[in-house]
Write a protein that binds this DNA or RNA. Structure first.
Lengths: 237, 237
DNA sequence: GTCTATATCGGGATAGAC
DNA sequence: GTCTATCCCGATATAGAC
């Protein structure tokens, strides 16, 4: 019942993804990855350069797929609103098919993406660029009001990442009955997110202050602060 | 120029917070915390039980403050909309005064809050409960339409956490000019978030599908799945 | 390609002097 | 309360047989 050679790599990758998602890069143990993969530690170093090489390969694979899909959505003939929906669906389905990704993305964000190589960083930039194009096209077509793409990106995407990554703690909270958090399906949350953000992008509104999102007046200020570096990378303060 | 005794604990706590924020619990080094604190490792173990004790004390302190403040907002005489705004301001100001918290929260979420003791979990539940009361009161007063508090919590709060935690990577992206992400002030993003969510909570709208958020029809299903446990806590899949 | 055994080192925690 | 020196386990990575 042992796997054949070709599956070794993918078996190790899957085991590593689960381990990294659960414990982070530093907390992950190569020994445990070996056990999960049903192989042993030496196999990992035969197929991959080291722990970091394994890690970045996982990230890059997923971002590559996500980058291609979001770009296709931006290029499609769908309406701007449909594109926004499709953009969020892409993230949601990525999270569903690769459940290790939301935790890994949260952690990587938390430490300033110190382990993201330039290649993968480019893929992330490409994803953001697709959203920017969707928004621009929407404005050009009169479907959206002007909106800062950075603010929109965070409002739209990050709750879905957070929602997926929080599945374990939501289950724990519900089980221990500290708070009736329930068992909400991701598709429900995604629909909720789409509705909120699309409403805010509507060009015409009722005129209440609450209906007016992010003043388009940039919010972007001159870059002034210089980074003070510590002995190790990834420091916040 | 050496600090006096009473400051030792707080100096260690500050150093530990920075170290945990930058590298996570597993990645943080007690040696480095000692260096940062300008004391030595033995001092840490004199004042704290161990690495974990240090960690949970940092989390609990902040959540205690946040719990008190959000409860006060919920109990106040302000309008429902003002309470939502104040609730988000509380998170934003916490992030500004304790910049180590957003990364720590992101990581804790990512690993299923395995290091959150019941005491702190109760504080987190209290914070969520305050939002729930604000929403309920808003509906009772006719200021809000009914909304699932869990969905609303994620849509409202998590982008602000993410935004703060992403400050380093946004600076890096901007510096390396992969993508023109700019230097956006947190207050601008918070205003944007308030506007979006408050608009979605408005009881009257123009009737477009986009204006309708999360069907109140629960989205909560029966709890069925049993957790399959791995050898170590915090596993996702 | 796959395994066992081992080198090597960093890091959590402690002993004990002052 | 504060420090130096040290124990010791666990974790990355490698050597080398099959």
């Amino acid at each position: 019942m042992k796997k054949v050679a070709a599956d070794t790599r993918s078996s190790i990758l899957a085991a590593a993804a689960a381990e990294f998602a659960a414990h982070g890069f530093a907390g992950a143990s190569v020994d445990d990855i070996a056990v999960r993969s049903q192989f042993n530690k030496a196999m990992i170093y035969y197929h991959f350069e080291n722990k970091l090489g394994l890690y970045v390969e996982i990230l890059r694979d997923v971002f590559r797929g996500l980058g291609a899909r979001t770009a296709a959505i931006a290029d499609s003939a769908a309406s701007p609103a449909e594109k926004i929906g499709g953009f969020l669906d892409a993230f949601n389905e990525m999270a569903a098919t690769h459940p290790y990704m939301p935790p890994m993305m949260m952690r990587e964000m938390a430490e300033g993406a110190v382990r993201v190589d330039p290649d993968t960083l480019g893929l992330m930039a490409r994803i953001f660029g697709s959203l920017r194009r969707i928004l621009q096209d929407g404005v050009a077509q009169g479907a959206f009001r002007p909106a800062n793409p950075v603010l929109t990106y965070f409002s739209l995407v990050t709750p879905v990442i957070f929602f997926h990554a929080s599945a374990p703690i939501r289950r724990a909270l519900d089980r221990q009955q500290f708070v009736p958090v329930g068992n909400i399906d991701a598709s429900v949350f995604v629909a909720h997110q789409k509705a909120i953000v699309l409403a805010a992008l509507q060009p015409c509104h009722d005129g209440t202050a609450a209906g007016r999102p992010a003043r388009q007046t940039t919010g972007v200020t001159a870059k002034t602060r210089k980074r003070t570096r510590s002995t190790r990378p990834g420091d916040h303060a």
